[in-house]
Simulated assay, not measured.
Amino acid sequence: MTQRIGTHRVGYAPGVYDLFHVGHLNILRHARSQCDYLVAGVVSDEMAQLAKGRAPVVPLVERLEIVRSVRFVDAAFVETVPDKVETWRQVRFDVLFKGDDWRGTDKGARLERDFAEVGVEIVYFPYTVHTSSTQLRRALDVLADQVRPSEAL
């Protein structure tokens, strides 16, 4: 059972949202359909570096503006701490949305356990396999490698 703030079910959809693509849009669209008020958590550059081992391509201020402008998002929040429960203490959401690539993983189990203690539901959505920021980043790296040799001429 999730708690409610006022009469609205508040959802939270965290992500780096780097190289914004249809998978990001799908998560936000699906999340908004399951809550009354959607907060998108945009992970700071520092937290992305910690979590993924690399900095985002698109700077935080631009990622925040992109996500804030998506019609499914009611508010955007900059995530600056690695502990999602600490983020919950700041935002106070009822349900947290993640891609189903987290389901059945150690990270997902920890998330479910931690949030069960504070009454927050975890809802998984299908991960967009054919498009990801990692794939887009790899494609950009390949293109950059193809351009570099001709620059030496």
Rank of each mutant, 00 (worst) to 15 (best):
residue 88 W to D: 10
residue 41 G to I: 08
residue 105 T to S: 05
residue 65 E to R: 00
residue 87 T to Q: 10
residue 25 L to V: 14
residue 113 R to E: 07
residue 56 P to L: 00
residue 54 R to A: 14
residue 28 L to R: 05
residue 15 G to P: 01
residue 138 R to Q: 13
residue 46 E to K: 02
residue 60 L to W: 03
residue 75 A to M: 13
residue 61 V to P: 00
residue 80 T to G: 11
residue 62 E to L: 07
residue 76 A to N: 00
residue 28 L to I: 05
residue 65 E to P: 00
residue 75 A to L: 13
residue 134 T to V: 01
residue 83 D to Y: 09
residue 115 F to A: 10
residue 128 T to L: 14
residue 136 L to S: 02
residue 3 Q to R: 12
residue 19 L to P: 00
residue 85 V to H: 02
residue 122 I to L: 12
residue 1 M to Y: 07
residue 35 C to G: 07
residue 116 A to Q: 12
residue 74 D to I: 01
residue 92 R to Y: 04
residue 121 E to G: 05
residue 136 L to T: 10
residue 87 T to E: 13
residue 74 D to K: 05
residue 132 S to V: 09
residue 81 V to M: 06
residue 151 E to D: 09
residue 33 S to W: 09
residue 3 Q to N: 13
residue 109 A to P: 02
residue 72 F to A: 08
residue 39 V to H: 01
residue 103 R to Q: 12
residue 55 A to N: 08
residue 92 R to K: 14
residue 108 G to H: 01
residue 97 F to C: 02
residue 141 D to C: 05
residue 47 M to R: 15
residue 144 A to R: 15
residue 108 G to D: 04
residue 29 R to I: 13
residue 33 S to D: 03
residue 25 L to Y: 14
residue 153 L to T: 11
residue 51 A to Q: 12
residue 104 G to I: 04
residue 18 D to K: 02
residue 69 S to C: 14
residue 152 A to I: 14
residue 70 V to F: 06
residue 104 G to L: 01
residue 54 R to L: 12
residue 148 R to D: 10
residue 123 V to F: 12
residue 152 A to C: 05
residue 39 V to E: 04
residue 19 L to V: 05
residue 61 V to D: 15
residue 36 D to Y: 08
residue 147 V to A: 12
residue 66 I to M: 15
residue 62 E to N: 10
residue 113 R to S: 11
residue 90 Q to P: 09
residue 143 L to I: 00
residue 95 V to I: 15
residue 23 G to A: 04
residue 78 V to L: 03
residue 94 D to Y: 03
residue 12 Y to E: 04
residue 131 T to S: 13
residue 124 Y to T: 00
residue 98 K to S: 04
residue 133 S to Y: 11
residue 28 L to V: 01
residue 45 D to P: 08
residue 152 A to T: 15
residue 40 A to R: 02
residue 39 V to D: 01
residue 149 P to W: 10
residue 34 Q to A: 11
residue 88 W to F: 12
residue 128 T to Y: 13
residue 24 H to M: 11
residue 148 R to C: 07
residue 102 W to F: 09
residue 117 E to H: 02
residue 134 T to R: 10
residue 133 S to N: 03
residue 111 L to G: 00
residue 7 T to W: 08
residue 8 H to R: 11
residue 30 H to N: 13
residue 98 K to P: 04
residue 12 Y to H: 06
residue 65 E to T: 11
residue 6 G to R: 00
residue 147 V to S: 08
residue 82 P to Q: 09
residue 123 V to G: 09
residue 140 L to S: 08
residue 44 S to L: 07
residue 121 E to M: 06
residue 84 K to I: 07
residue 62 E to V: 06
residue 43 V to H: 03
residue 82 P to V: 03
residue 35 C to W: 04
residue 6 G to M: 03
residue 150 S to E: 10
residue 115 F to Y: 06
residue 38 L to F: 09
residue 118 V to L: 05
residue 45 D to E: 02
residue 91 V to L: 02
residue 45 D to I: 07
residue 143 L to M: 12
residue 118 V to C: 01
residue 129 V to L: 12
residue 149 P to D: 06
residue 128 T to K: 02
residue 62 E to C: 09
residue 49 Q to V: 00
residue 60 L to K: 07
residue 108 G to L: 03
residue 62 E to W: 02
residue 114 D to P: 01
residue 126 P to K: 06
residue 107 K to H: 05
